[in-house]
């Protein structure tokens, strides 16, 4: 307990000091609040954006709907929705293609050159095309996110299938499996540690892409909100938005990591 407490004190010493200095500098008026607002102002803005704007009115809405009616909550849901849909599309395509490419040499030979050409192009570079193809709103955003999630999941799935230890295949053949059972009950589970590592990278990429895509094509979401705040030079709101983006990213990564640990509870040497 005491060592834990000590570690906590040590870990928070530098950030706390930084915040105190930052606050002092801002209050002393050495820096314009447009360039760097005080941390207290950021926290106030953050809280304002999180809380419902209007008073609770039981005739028009439920208490839950009211509690979630804050601007930041709406934006977070909008961003999360795009990440989830984009990721599901991207990973949903990458998984079967990766399984096929990993297991079948011919499919690999056919598709690999294309993959190698497209993979190094950052999803961000597809922004102009995505607007030409899909217009404005959610579709181009989902497309870019799907693209960002696709390649990490694909590459890891291929590697995962290829590294399956031959001893499992021999044991399975010895037990009399057919190809389908071998694939679903042996190769797929044996490849899951790799696939899930790809999923985690893919979700991370999806989250980067969602913020960028919201700055170009839509009018809600956490990425849109900080760009909007810039137009009014609301620096405190920009930083509050960044804080929200960081917290959402942390929440997503923690969730994925929990899911990984559950799915890989059979696996030796769990990591976070």
């Amino acid at each position: 307990m005491t060592t834990k407490l000590k570690a906590l004190c040590e870990g928070s010493a530098v950030p706390l000091l930084l915040i105190v200095v930052w606050e002092a500098v801002a209050r002393a008026g050495w820096i314009s609040p447009i360039v760097m607002p005080a941390p207290s102002a950021v926290v106030v803005k953050w809280w304002e954006a999180l809380m419902p704007a209007a008073a609770y009115d039981p005739t028009s809405q439920s208490r839950l709907a009211w509690a979630l009616s804050g601007e930041m909550v709406h934006d977070a849901f909008a961003s999360l929705y795009r990440v989830v849909v984009g990721f599901l599309v991207g990973a949903g395509l990458a998984l079967p293609i990766g399984l096929l490419m990993g297991a079948n040499k011919r499919t690999y030979a056919l598709l690999n050159p294309l993959v190698q050409v497209l993979r190094p192009i950052p999803p961000i570079a597809f922004i102009p095309l995505s607007i030409l193809w899909f217009g404005l709103g959610n579709p181009p955003s989902v497309f870019l996110i799907a693209l960002g999630a696709f390649f990490p999941v694909l590459m890891n799935t291929i590697a995962g299938v290829r590294q399956v230890d031959g001893i499992y295949l021999r044991a399975a053949y010895n037990l009399g499996v057919n190809q389908w059972t071998l694939f679903t009950r042996v190769i797929l589970p044996a490849a899951t540690p790799y696939i899930l590592a790809g999923v985690r990278i893919g979700i991370g990429t999806a989250f980067i892409v969602v913020i960028v895509s919201e700055m170009i094509a839509v009018n809600n979401g956490l990425g849109f909100r900080i760009l909007e705040a810039r137009e009014f030079m609301w620096s405190d709101k920009i930083i509050a938005g960044m804080l929200a983006i960081g917290l959402l990213g942390l929440a997503i990564d923690t969730g994925v990591s929990r899911l990984n640990n559950h799915l890989l509870r059979w696996h030796r040497g769990l990591e976070h």
Binding site: R170, A171, N174, L175, G176, N178, V186, W266, H267, R268
Partner: peptide, 30 residues
């Protein structure tokens, strides 16, 4: 290979993602 000649390997070759009971049941499910 076939299930009429069951093989026990030096490296055990158990499926690590299956529990003990699931490992034993697998050949029967097949």
């Amino acid at each position: 290979p076939g299930p009429d000649r069951g093989m026990v390997f030096q490296e055990y070759a158990l499926f690590p993602w299956m529990t003990v009971a699931e490992n034993i049941a697998f050949g029967l499910q097949v």
